[in-house]
Amino acid sequence: MRIKRLTVSFFAILAFLVLGILIAVQLKNVNTKNAQSEYAEKDLTELQEQVMALMRENDSLSEQNRQLSSLISSMGEELSGDNDALQVIMTEKAKAEAFAGLTDVHGPGLMITVDPGQDASVNAKTLLLLVNELRASGALAISINDERIVAMSEIRDTGTDKPQIVMNGNSYEATSPFTVKSIYRESDINRGLQLIQSLIEQLGTASDIVVSNGDDIQIKALSEDSLANQPT
């Protein structure tokens, strides 16, 4: 009788033990499974995006190489008396000058004014944040106080008693208002406007920053005597 009782107790304990373990395993699985599958899918999606981006880049490079080969071949013809290549070179020059910021440009875009107010000054960090946000939202050309912002343009603070901001080697009083102009593709203007408005909210600076869009913003070329206009 006693043996029977012990056997029953043993089976009961074993069954409850197995049940407990199974419930614990199941609960743990539910928690980890969600997290794991989320991470695995995220990693896979990121990898897919990288593959797609590289495919697009390679397609673009192939097209560029095809165009370059064609240009080289037309220049070879120029050397043997064909005049078309000179026209191609002039177009290349015009493009290089426009891309370098060496030509006046105009078009639809945004106008931002940064007014430091009384007894305050604008700092270079605010202007850098605005310029970087304009670029990220698709600005094609940018100027600050008619100083064309090009590839190697510096924007930095200088002076303590009389703070100034240096751009392209030229100094501007940091206590005066700054005007930032930018030209966009029509399709990018609203995005640019939203991003700049959002940045202004985040900045919450003492300066009064106002942004507006315009149909024909005029941006001057990089000045001939500017420090940024001296290639190494």
Binding site: S60, L61, E63, Q64, Q67, L68, T91, A94, K95, A98, F99, T103, V105, H106, G107, L140, A141, I183, R185
Partner: peptide, 18 residues
């Protein structure tokens, strides 16, 4: 910088065409 497609796109928007 070698992305000629991007250069063409910027230049075309800024009024320089091939």
């Amino acid at each position: 910088y070698s992305d000629t497609a991007a250069i063409d796109s910027v230049c075309s928007e800024l009024g320089v065409t091939s």
